[in-house]
Amino acid sequence: MREPLRSHEPAASYHELRAWQQAIRLTETLGPLTAALHRSERRALGDQLMRAATSVHANTAEGSGRAGRRDMLRFLTIAWSSLLEVESHLVEAASIPRCPRALVSDARAEARRAGILLAALRRSLST
């Protein structure tokens, strides 16, 4: 990955967006968590968790390719909603006795970081 941008520099590619980079880290963090789930939980909760996390970085990337701010903001709103879905699934994962608490805690921390960067990106486009 390239070096993250400072907030005042325009991104030449979505790969340079810190929000996208953090969303990728979130998805990578969820791999071990979903692998630790029991098979039935992995099929239901794990699949939903990974789909929602993938949607965060995919919509951030897709929005960055749109021509106007309004379109990009629409895709970032979808990414934000997907991030909220990830957080909700993590609450559910934390309630599963066999689910390692440290992995849930790590995933929650990555989700918080993703949320901070996504919110900052949305704010920067709204002004």
Rank of each mutant, 00 (worst) to 15 (best):
R43Q: 13
A12S: 14
S88P: 03
R66Y: 09
A93I: 04
A109I: 04
A44E: 04
S95R: 14
A53L: 06
A12V: 09
R101G: 03
A114G: 11
R69K: 14
E28P: 06
E62V: 06
R39F: 10
R6L: 12
R98T: 14
P100I: 05
G68T: 15
D47M: 12
G63V: 02
V86N: 05
R18I: 14
T29L: 06
T34C: 13
L117H: 05
L90V: 09
M72S: 11
A61P: 01
Y14S: 12
A102E: 13
T127H: 13
A93D: 03
L83I: 12
M1F: 11
P4H: 10
S13G: 04
S95G: 07
T77E: 09
Y14M: 04
G68Q: 06
S126T: 13
R43P: 00
C99E: 00
E87R: 15
L118P: 02
L76D: 00
R25H: 11
R69F: 07
T60S: 01
R98A: 08
S95K: 09
Q22D: 10
V91H: 11
L76V: 09
A114D: 02
E110S: 07
A61F: 01
T34L: 02
A61L: 03
G65D: 04
P32Q: 07
S7N: 11
A109F: 06
H8P: 02
A44L: 11
L90D: 07
S7V: 14
A114L: 03
R6D: 10
R70I: 07
P100W: 02
L33I: 00
R123E: 10
L121A: 03
W80G: 01
D71Y: 05
D71Q: 15
L30F: 07
G115A: 06
L5K: 06
Q21G: 05
H57Y: 11
V91D: 11
E28T: 09
E9S: 08
I96H: 09
S124P: 00
A119G: 13
L33C: 03
V86Y: 00
L125Q: 08
L49N: 05
T77S: 12
H15D: 12
H38S: 11
R123V: 00
S7F: 13
T29Y: 01
L73M: 14
D106Q: 14
E87Y: 04
S81V: 11
E16F: 03
E87L: 12
L49Y: 00
V86G: 01
S64Y: 11
T127C: 09
